[in-house]
Amino acid sequence: MPRYFFDVHIDRKVQRDDTGTDLATLEEVRKTAQRLLPDLAREKIPYGGDQRAIVVVTNEESHPVYAASLNYAGLWLIR
């Protein structure tokens, strides 16, 4: 079963996936990347301001196979 690596890019910082995940199909790769994005929005994106989280998936040969992004815009309406 092929192994894929899910690297996370937020605000010019990269968190490398050194472990990887074994997935049977490219559809599983897509679904896994998409499931990561809401968790990133809740846990990793700083409070306030605009941010973009990008998940770049590479295969065992380090070739990119899929990318997913989430744009977050936050604006306080009260002070």
Rank of each mutant, 00 (worst) to 15 (best):
R12M: 12
R79M: 15
D17E: 07
V8D: 01
D50R: 00
A67R: 12
V57H: 06
E43F: 13
L75Q: 13
R12Y: 12
V29C: 05
N59W: 05
G49R: 06
S69P: 02
V55C: 02
Y4V: 07
L77A: 06
P64Q: 04
D11R: 05
A41M: 07
F5I: 15
I54H: 06
D17N: 14
L26D: 14
F6I: 04
R30P: 08
D17L: 06
L37G: 00
K44D: 03
R3I: 12
Y4L: 09
L77W: 00
A73K: 08
L77S: 06
A53V: 03
D17Q: 08
D39F: 14
P38K: 09
P64Y: 05
N71D: 14
A33C: 05
E27H: 11
D50Q: 02
Q34H: 06
I45N: 00
K13N: 06
L70G: 03
G49M: 04
D7W: 01
T25S: 15
E60F: 09
L40C: 01
Q15G: 11
D50T: 02
R16W: 12
V65M: 00
W76Y: 14
H9V: 08
D50E: 06
A68R: 09
D11V: 01
D7Q: 01
A67I: 13
Q15N: 15
V8S: 01
Q34V: 03
D17W: 06
L75Y: 13
V8P: 00
Q51K: 07
E60M: 13
E61W: 12
E61I: 14
A68F: 08
L70T: 02
T58C: 06
T32S: 04
I45D: 02
A67K: 09
F5D: 10
R42I: 09
R3A: 10
T58M: 03
Y72A: 09
L40Y: 05
R30G: 08
D39A: 15
R52A: 08
R42M: 11
D11C: 04
P64A: 05
H63K: 10
L26R: 10
V8L: 00
T58Y: 05
L23G: 07
K31W: 14
T19L: 09
A68V: 14
W76M: 12
I54S: 15
G74S: 09
L70Y: 05
A67F: 08
S69N: 07
I45A: 04
T25F: 07
T58K: 10
E61K: 15
D17M: 07
L70W: 04
V55N: 02
F6C: 03
H9M: 11
V56M: 11
Y66D: 05
I78L: 08
L26C: 03
L37S: 03
E60N: 10
D11M: 01
A53H: 02
A41W: 01
E43V: 07
R30M: 10
G74Y: 14
L37C: 00
T25M: 07
L75P: 03
D7K: 03
D50P: 00
A68Q: 13
Y66H: 12
M1G: 13
V29F: 03
D39H: 11
L77V: 09
A73Y: 07
V57M: 05
T32V: 04
A53E: 02
D11F: 03
P46S: 04
E27P: 07
E60R: 12
